[in-house]
Amino acid sequence: MSTERRERGVALARAARAGNTLALHDLLDHLTPYVARVCEPIALADGPDATQEALVAVFTSLRTLKDPQALYGWVRAIAVREAVRVARRAARARPATELADVPQPGDPQLAADIADVLARLSPDHRAVLVLRDVEGLDEDAAAALLAIPPGTAKSRLSRARSSFRKAWSA
């Protein structure tokens, strides 16, 4: 994200917190694509639901954001949390295949399909993958955001990346 765009978001958050609902309106436009970008790779088909629930959570607690400069990290944490929650809820309703089942050599059609590999990862694995490889957080920051030990984040990431490597080399 460009510095200019980031600063615009921070300025809108500051104005919205000061009581300007038109700034709130523009902030919603501004944050929607960012939240969708975090939620969709984690919640997959339930990405739109996750995006909506994350935005409701962000806007409900906007008053608690003490430092508008921290807007994006704060929004990202909420978006990841909501995406994992929505994806887990969906997974309970539609049990997914175990990660160990995929990808298998000799199954090139499935193995070549990134969406399929992603879908077979658990929401927690997808969350680590998004934070590390899409959002560019380091392991400690990703672990802190997900409230898990760094070692767990590392092993989840390793497992998720390994699934992709297998997928592409199948």
Partner: peptide, 20 residues
């Protein structure tokens, strides 16, 4: 502009930030 959320959902989100 295309939104990831429809207009009614947008209204619920906006209202979430407005006490009362």
């Amino acid at each position: 502009m295309m939104y990831a959320v429809d207009a009614v959902t947008r209204l619920r989100i906006m209202a979430a930030a407005v006490p009362g």
